[in-house]
Simulated assay, not measured.
Amino acid sequence: MRSIGNFLWFIFGGFFMGLAWWFFGILAFITIIGIPWGKACFVIGQFTFLPFGREAVSRNVLNQKDDIGTGVLGFIGNVIWFIFAGAWLAIGHIISALACFVTIIGIPFGIQHLKLAGISLAPIGKTIVSK
């Protein structure tokens, strides 16, 4: 079932949003300072191409740490990300979700786009794991 979901996702919108993530990754790599964001863009872009069977979780959940979030530097990084790329990717995912919600078959894909919109707002501190 995952394979069918990933195939349909890739054909009907996942390809374009994955390319958008990779586009912002390339832009981040052009600036030397943006390399960490660029690396994250390529990981999340790959996740965007084939999301079913995997999920994005906080790194703190994996490490079982009691600290809150990614700290001050992670917060600052997420704010910078939001200003330059996160808002645009979130808008793209929301528009794609609305297009998917038009049909009954597209509802699971729309839900996945909304999850990806949330990730695109603050990706620092997230990692992709298999379910």
Rank of each mutant, 00 (worst) to 15 (best):
R59M: 07
L8V: 15
F15N: 09
F47S: 02
K39P: 00
S130I: 15
C100S: 14
S58V: 00
D66A: 14
L116D: 05
I111N: 03
A117F: 05
I83N: 07
A20G: 11
F82N: 00
F29Q: 10
F7R: 08
G92A: 04
W81Y: 09
V129K: 03
L116G: 02
F16D: 06
G53K: 04
W88F: 15
H93V: 00
A99F: 13
F16C: 03
D66R: 08
K65I: 11
V57H: 07
I105N: 08
A85I: 08
I33T: 07
I68D: 09
A117D: 07
N60A: 12
G25P: 04
V79M: 15
I44S: 09
G92L: 10
W22Q: 08
F42R: 08
G118K: 03
S58L: 12
I32C: 15
I124H: 10
G53M: 03
F42C: 05
K39C: 14
V129A: 11
G118S: 10
V43Q: 12
C100P: 12
I95P: 03
F23R: 08
F109M: 14
F29T: 09
L27D: 14
G5P: 02
I32M: 14
T48G: 00
F23H: 13
R54Q: 13
A117K: 04
G69E: 03
D67V: 13
C100H: 13
F52E: 05
T48H: 00
G106N: 06
G74N: 00
K131P: 06
F101D: 11
K65C: 12
S58F: 09
G13V: 04
P36Y: 00
I4H: 14
